[in-house]
Each structure stands twice: as structure tokens, then as C-alpha cells.
Design a protein around this nucleic acid. Structure first.
Lengths: 229, 229
DNA sequence: TGTTTATGAATGAACG
DNA sequence: CGTTCATTCATAAACA
């Protein structure tokens, strides 16, 4: 059995038909299940890591600091013998992106010089970053947001009028965050990883097989997304 | 479990969908990304554990063992041959490509927005396409054309003693390198995780997760899990 | 069917 | 600020 992609029975406007996928409740449940599996595994792994590093800290002590980046002993040992490569361009971590998006969504889209400084300082606690990075990010974010808006200008038949927030924006935000975490996750340290876990782990899924007893709290959580479908 | 597929009308709210839910491509993508986030986090945590247990092999203790127990991959538990048949990215048809190439050959390297619109409209008669597709195509076409030219030019050789540097890296200005080095500093991370098709395999989980664990999955294939629903 | 290649897409940075 | 370039990722297509 295959998922069926239905083209909208809509006047074939230039913008192309709106494609949707059709899922049954059972299929949806499978998705929730799978995601909850990963959430559960992440949870357990983090706990295990805490347990092990806790006993290890007694012997090893604090981690090393290299520049701005915190590298715990584990990271160092993993990196030894492998290529140490400087990145060619800054990439926001999941946490940084979250913060940036939040600030951006506050509408005060004018990051003054002073604001940039503050933001940079705050984000600096979650990874390398410079004021230029922040500045560029806002520039790009604004420009691309605008372009997307224009692009979706001609009479979009978006399927959700019940939301005050633009679903496109919302999805984009989530997508960006997820994508970043996926693409660049291997470069974040454990401290950030743990935070990421908290961040994403906040979106647990209630499945029959996983009685995690956690519902979606974040408006950006996936459960909210699923429920809104 | 047998999937129930229902025909959809245009609006998910108007279809009286008591049995089905409708997802847009975008929402689907969010799900995929979300799962990949968990997969990546799991991957990193497993790597950390490997490192820790490797450097103190005595640490593996009660109930926290990563390694020997077998669990059916999600593929098995969920994979009944169900497929998500959505196209994930646009692919130009032969006709479209021909037109695009012809326009590109005309040398006017920068098709302005208005041009893009026109081109999109024209190509739209030969298949589903958006302005973004056209825009991206020209971006990529130009960039890759340029790269090819540079690569075929054995001129720039200022060989620093680097053993095997690709042409694209040569094109990087020293200035950029210096700035980036300053911006990011020494970056010790799991570089190998980002680039290789590493195996998550060999790490399975005991306990409640036993019947729904994951194994042998790279992030890519984990995303592919969704395709197997 | 698994691996490699070609290329659509995303995005940080730079330019005018 | 809008536009363009450069780099990278992920995947469709091609290949073995």
C-alpha cells in the first residue's frame, strides 16, 4: 500500500497544485511511535552519559577549553587522531537558532548595534559566534522571509485559516531548526547536546507503547503540528 | 495492520475527514526532520559512549550496556512495504532543461526576477515548476559552470605544501581562511560523523526499548524509515 | 541491490 | 537592503 498524493481539485493556477498526503490515524500513530522511540532512546542515552561522566569526572576533572569552545575530555579523545578541521563558515547551533528565531519573531526586526552585541553575548554561551554572524543572520532572515512572502503572494490556498500565525513561517522555523541540528549536530558538544535534547525532548509523543506521560507543551512541538493537521 | 486510504477532496476541513488526516509536503518534511534530529542525537550519544567505554572498558556495568542485544530495526516492525511516494525535489523535464540551457547559453547570466517569472510561466507548460526552481537552477548552473572553468585552469598554483587540495579549496582566498579561522577557532568535533556514512549499528538497547529499537541506521536511512511506512 | 555521481536546495557571507 | 556568490547537504538518477 502506498501513500497517495492527491493533487488538489483546484483551478490549475500557475502556482501549481497543492499536493497533500493522506494518512490514516493508524499511520499517524506509527509516526508518533517512531518519533517517541527516538525521544526515549535519547532520554536514556543522556541519562547514561550523565551517569558515566559523573563517575568519570572524579578522576578526570574538568574539561579543556579551546578558544570559545568547550570540549569535554570525551570529545577530545574522540577527536584525537582525526582531522581537526576548522569550519569554513559559522553555523548556528540548534540552541542559537532557537534564540535567534525567537528574537526575530518578536517583530522588533531592527537589531540595533547594541542589540547585536547583547545577542552575540548571549549566543556566545552556546557556541562560537561573532557580531558579524548575528548581523548577517538577521539580514538573511529578513530578506528571505520577505522573498518567501512575495513568492507565496499569488492566492495561496493554504489549508489552515484557523491559525493566526502563518503556518509557512512556523514550518520554516521548525524545519530550519531541525535541519540545522541534523546537519551540524556532530559538531556540537555535549553540553549543547544535552540542551538540544531538552529542547527537542520537550516534544515527546504519546503513543500507546510509550507511556511517557508527556504531552506537547511547546507551540512549536511536533505534537502540536500533528494535532493541527 | 492494513492502511486505510481515503480519497481526499480539496480542503482537509471540508472532506469530513473522520478517518484520515492530510499533510502537506511541508508538514511531512517537518516530521522527517524531527526524526532525523533524534537520530543524530542518538548517534552522537552512542559515539560518546563508545569512546568512554573504550577508554575505560571497565565502566560497562549493570543494565547500561550498549552493544550486544539485538533488536528488530524499525524497518522490520514497521516496514510492510509501505511507501511514501512523494517527490522530494523538483527535477526538470527534458523539455524544461532544454529551454533552460538555451536561455543560459544566451549569456545573459542573470535572469532578473521578471525574467524568472516569465521563464517559470513558460516552463510551467511542460511540467510542475516554481520560480524558486528556476532561480536555483540558474544559481547552480552558473556556479558549477564557473567552478568547472576554474578547475580546468592550471594557473593559480601557489602550492602551499598541501598534499591534495581540491580546486574549490584553492579558490578560497587566504583572507577568507584567516577570517574564518579567527571566527571559529579550533573546532574539534565529530567530523567523521558528518561526512561518512557511519554505522549506527552494533548499538542496540535493552529493556523496554527492545522491541522497537533501531539499528544499523545512518541519518539518511533513518529518514528513509519514513519512506518505509 | 548497493555505490557513485549529478544536481536541486539551503544558507552564511559578500557585494553594490 | 536587495541581490549574488560560495559552499555544503541530501537525494534523484545513473551506474555496476
Amino acid at each position: 500500500m502506498e501513500w497517495q498524493i492527491e493533487e488538489q481539485e483546484q483551478s490549475p493556477n500557475a502556482n501549481g497544485g497543492l499536493y497533500v498526503k493522506v494518512m490514516t490515524d493508524e499511520q499517524m500513530e506509527v509516526l508518533r511511535q517512531q518519533i517517541s522511540v527516538y525521544a526515549t532512546i535519547c532520554e536514556q542515552l543522556v541519562e547514561m552519559h550523565k551517569a558515566i561522566t559523573a563517575q568519570q569526572d572524579l578522576a578526570v576533572g574538568v574539561g579543556l577549553r579551546l578558544g570559545n569552545s568547550y570540549c569535554d575530555p570525551l570529545m577530545v579523545s574522540c577527536g584525537s587522531g582525526h582531522k581537526i578541521t576548522a569550519r569554513q563558515r559559522w553555523t548556528p547551533t540548534a540552541v542559537q537558532l532557537e534564540i535567534l528565531e525567537r528574537i526575530f519573531e518578536q517583530g522588533n526586526g531592527t537589531p540595533s548595534k547594541q542589540k547585536i552585541k547583547e545577542i552575540t553575548t548571549e549566543l556566545g554561551q552556546h557556541g562560537h559566534i561573532s557580531e558579524t554572524n548575528v548581523y548577517n543572520w538577521f539580514q538573511n532572515r529578513r530578506a528571505r522571509s520577505k522573498r518567501k512572502q512575495i513568492a507565496s503572494e499569488p492566492n495561496i490556498i493554504v489549508e489552515s485559516e484557523q491559525e493566526s500565525e502563518s503556518p509557512k513561517e512556523k514550518s520554516l522555523s521548525l524545519e530550519k531548526r531541525a535541519r540545522d541540528a541534523y546537519l551540524h549536530g556532530p559538531d556540537i558538544g555535549f553540553e549543547q547536546l544535552a540542551t538540544s535534547k531538552m529542547e527537542f525532548g520537550g516534544c515527546y509523543f504519546q503513543g500507546e507503547l510509550q507511556d511517557m506521560g508527556l504531552g506537547g507543551q511547546s507551540p512549536n512541538s511536533l505534537i502540536a503540528l500533528l494535532d493541527s493537521i
